[in-house]
């Protein structure tokens, strides 16, 4: 059983960074609402607030790691130009998608939207983390600020969701292939 370096990068980008971010984002939204809006907010302790700070910083790191690995590691492989006369486009995902009317939309709408909208996630969650760390539960006293913070956190989830959905579908129709093979386990014939 083996995996190529490009496929491994795709897994790291999409599942480790992107997937984990999406999971964390839904949890953060609930917790931010509970701490700053809900009347049933838990008792304030240094330990719990410190946990939230670390949680939000980790989310910001995951979001930045996802967009940077996507843009600078995987996207160049995705948009690679095939040499003239290339018939087999399996190593050139963008061109492979564009070669068929059935799949061109995954590039012209999916990738074109994903490559830009994904960047709204780290920008938004960095701001959310900064404001929460700076103000904490004092956001309860700033109705407009906490509304804006919650909307940006939601927008971050939506942006990451759009990017994740299109990323998964594009990888289904035109996966990024190539690179050296990494042996995971040695197979045995039964």
């Amino acid at each position: 059983m083996e995996i190529t370096t490009r496929a491994l990068w795709t897994v790291i980008h999409g599942i480790l960074f992107g997937g984990l971010y999406l999971f964390a984002c839904s949890g953060a939204l609930v917790e931010l609402y509970r701490l700053t809006v809900s009347p049933t907010s838990p008792e304030s302790t240094h330990g719990h607030d410190r946990f939230m700070h670390i949680y939000l910083i980790t989310m910001a790191v995951l979001a930045w790691a996802a967009v940077l690995s996507g843009t600078y590691a995987i996207y160049p492989w995705y948009r690679a130009t095939p040499p003239p006369g290339t018939v087999n486009l399996s190593m050139f995902p963008q061109r492979l998608l564009m070669s068929s009317p059935a799949t061109i939309g995954w590039h012209s709408v999916g990738m074109e939207w994903k490559e830009h909208v994904a960047w709204f996630a780290p920008i938004s969650i960095t701001m959310v983390a900064f404001v929460f760390i700076r103000y904490g539960r004092d956001l309860r006293n700033h109705r407009q600020l906490r509304s804006a913070v919650l909307v940006f956190a939601l927008a971050s989830l939506v942006a990451a969701g759009i990017a994740g959905f299109f990323g998964a579908e594009i990888d289904e129709y035109a996966p990024v292939r190539g690179g050296s093979a990494i042996q995971l386990t040695a197979g045995e014939a039964k």
């Binding site: 304030s44 302790t45 920008i123």
Partner: peptide, 25 residues
């Protein structure tokens, strides 16, 4: 250890810092 959101001896936080972060985002 519970603590108050705004200890009585500290001035209330102005909102400028957060508003700057929100608008710039």
């Amino acid at each position: 250890r519970a603590y108050n959101v705004s200890p009585p001896d500290t001035p209330p936080l102005t909102n400028g810092c957060a508003v700057a972060a929100i608008l710039s985002a």
